[in-house]
Nucleic acid binder design. Structure first.
Lengths: 130, 130
DNA sequence: CTAGAATCTGACGTGGACGTGAGGTTCAAC
DNA sequence: GTTGAACCTCACGTCCACGTCAGATTCTAG
C-alpha cells in the first residue's frame, strides 16, 4: 500500500507518516523507484501510534516500544520503559479524572443556576447519579 | 503574596505565572511599584490551571472557563464550552485507557516471556495485582 | 542610604509534531 | 510516449507553553 492510501485509511496526514519514518517509528519498504510501500498491517500500527501520541508518549519512547509490539516480547530494558510509560499513563488518567470532576462540578452548579434562570426556577436537585 | 512566593508554593515557574497573566488566565493586582500581588486563593487556582493544562485544554479555553470557576456560575456559552471540554476529556480518558491496556497486554505477554527466559521457566501466572 | 535580592518589561530561543511550499521524479492510464 | 496524479527530498514556517538572557526598577535589611 502506498503512502497516500495509508494516510486516507488512517486519517493521518502523509507528512505525519513520513515523520514517523524519520523517527524510526514506522519504516516502510521501498519500491524500485523509491516510493514507500506499507503492509496492510500498517493501518493498525498507525492507529496504535496515534493512541500512544495521544497518551503523551514522546517519539523516542514510541520508537523504543514498537519493536516489542511487533515481536510480542520485550527485552528487560524495553519492559522497564513499558512499565514506566504505563504508570505515567495511569497517573495522567487520574489527573484527567480530577480535571473532569472539577469541570463537572462547575457544570452542575453553574448549569443549575443557568437553567433555573431561564427554565423557570429551582430544579429539585442538581442531579448527577454518575 | 508576591510572584516568587506563589511560584514556590505551587511548584510553577515565575515565567509560567507571568504567562498566565499574559493570556488573561490569572491576572493579579499590582503594587504601587508595579509588582504583582496574588491573593492566597491563587495557590488553589494555579493548581486548577495546571490540571486543565494537563488535561489538554488550550489557554484560550482555560481563559474562557476561569470566570465561571470564580463566579460559580456560567453563561450559556461558557456552559457549552465547559460541556464540550468535559466530553473531550472523557474521550481522552477512554483513549488513554485503551493505550494503557495495549501497553499492559504487551507487558504481560512480553514480560512473562522475558521473565521465564531469565527467572527459570514458566511462572504460574504473569501476576501483577497492582 | 545603600547593597543585594526580588521583580519588572521586552524579546529571542526551544522542542515537539507536524504544515507548507519548491522543484524534481515516478507511476498508471491512455 | 505523453500526460497528470501521486510521490520524492529538502528545508523553512507554525503553534504553544514556557525557558532564558539583558538591562532597568523596586523592595527589604542593615
Amino acid at each position: 500500500m502506498r503512502i497516500g492510501e495509508l494516510a486516507e485509511k488512517t486519517g493521518v496526514s502523509v507528512r505525519a507518516l513520513r515523520y514517523y519514518e524519520e523517527k524510526g517509528i514506522l519504516v516502510p519498504e521501498r519500491s524500485t523507484g523509491g516510493h514507500r510501500s506499507y503492509p496492510e498491517s500498517g493501518v493498525g500500527v498507525v492507529w496504535l501510534i496515534q493512541q500512544f501520541y495521544a497518551a503523551g508518549l514522546p517519539s523516542k519512547s514510541i520508537q523504543a516500544i514498537m519493536p516489542s509490539v511487533r515481536a510480542g516480547r520485550a527485552t528487560p530494558e524495553a519492559l522497564e520503559l513499558l512499565v514506566t510509560e504505563r504508570d505515567r499513563i495511569d497517573k495522567a488518567a487520574r489527573e484527567l479524572a480530577g480535571a473532569r470532576d472539577r469541570l463537572d462540578a462547575i457544570i452542575t452548579t453553574a448549569g443549575a443556576d443557568s437553567c433555573a434562570s431561564h427554565c423557570g426556577e429551582n430544579a429539585p436537585e442538581p442531579g448527577l447519579p454518575q
